[in-house]
Simulated scan of single mutants.
Amino acid sequence: MSKDMVILALSCLGIVQALFLSFYLFTLNKGSRRANLFLGLAILGLTIRIGKSVLNVYLDLEPWQRNLGLSGILLTGPSLWFYGKALLLSKKDFLSKDVLHFLPFILFVTFSTVIPNNANPISYVIYILVFSHLAVYVFLSFGLLVGNRTEIRKQLGNWFRNLVIGTALIWLFYMGHLAGLFSFYIGGALFFSLLIYVFSFLFLQKHAFQLGKYNSSTLDKSTSKLLMESLKQLFSEEEIYLDNSLSLESVSERLKVSPRKLSQAINENEEKNFSDFVASHRVEKAKSLLIDPNYRNEKIIAVAYDCGFGNITSFNLAFKAKTKRTPSQYRREFGKV
């Protein structure tokens, strides 16, 4: 297979993956429907633009066809910005005046047959204006992050930041190519394919699926931190995690909050779910008991039960996941003689 065929195959796979991801987001009922819609539109806009890049290398496209591809950039910018608002600020209302942000895209598509695109000076000016439009929304999106950094939850902020950076890098590639800094035109399509596979991988992880899980929550960032401090204090002072019947509901009752808010606080501040958070404390306790001279003759299963684990299997799995050693190996290596 020739080099050109490999590049074409990789680019096309990225485009297909992006179309699949867009369609998936349009039909996704988890999290914020509005956020899913705008993210799908942003990815679709980039896909239209990148698809044009691929076709333009291997086919002789008409000016109106190139304009349709260029129009995707006008869809991406406002969609990315509104996605940030829906995700980070839980903006529920999309006002009729907000449609004006998509007017450049609508007009560009409508008049694509008459807009010049023939490598003349006017065409270059239009090209720069279109990408300047995207640059404005990239800056606005970064502004969302900076202006609301004290209120934005960490996971949401990191996810949106990465999306904006990815979009900005695509913008830089095409502007760099226009300025003559990059001669490999289809490189933008390859880079886009890489980004899409990275984003798709994240969406296959629970992290991305849970981004909008707490969008309707009234628990703000500062209250979330205070709740987390109360939980850690409760675990430290009373060691309630040693109870193998401990549940999210029982702990939330002790702290006088709803299980949902407690789960949210753990997820946002520790990037763990409740079970993992409890297991990490139990493992830390087990590490201290395994090297305690008073426990030298105790069996591993006794240590497991004393630390709150219900069976030896779950103990071994949790312990090795955290320490990279089995309990027996840890005792031999660090146990006091």
Score class of each variant (00 low, 15 high):
2 S>E: 10
49 R>S: 13
78 P>K: 01
38 F>Y: 07
227 L>C: 14
334 F>Q: 04
121 P>L: 08
265 A>T: 01
321 A>V: 09
96 S>N: 03
87 L>A: 05
326 T>Y: 07
179 A>K: 11
298 E>K: 15
150 T>A: 02
257 V>A: 05
137 Y>H: 03
250 S>H: 03
320 K>R: 15
169 L>C: 10
26 F>D: 00
278 V>P: 01
240 I>K: 12
56 N>W: 08
176 G>D: 07
159 W>T: 12
333 E>G: 02
193 S>Q: 08
6 V>Q: 11
112 S>T: 09
281 H>K: 11
36 N>K: 03
158 N>Q: 14
221 K>I: 07
30 K>I: 03
309 F>Y: 13
268 E>N: 14
148 N>G: 02
237 E>M: 08
287 K>P: 02
323 T>F: 04
249 E>D: 13
315 F>N: 01
93 D>C: 07
130 V>P: 00
332 R>T: 09
253 E>C: 01
273 N>D: 15
317 L>A: 13
40 G>V: 05
166 G>W: 10
257 V>C: 12
31 G>E: 14
150 T>H: 10
33 R>N: 04
95 L>T: 04
29 N>C: 01
74 L>E: 03
64 W>N: 01
299 K>E: 15
34 R>K: 15
321 A>C: 13
140 L>F: 14
40 G>P: 03
255 L>G: 07
138 V>M: 11
255 L>M: 04
281 H>Y: 11
317 L>P: 01
309 F>G: 02
59 L>M: 09
46 L>F: 05
123 S>R: 11
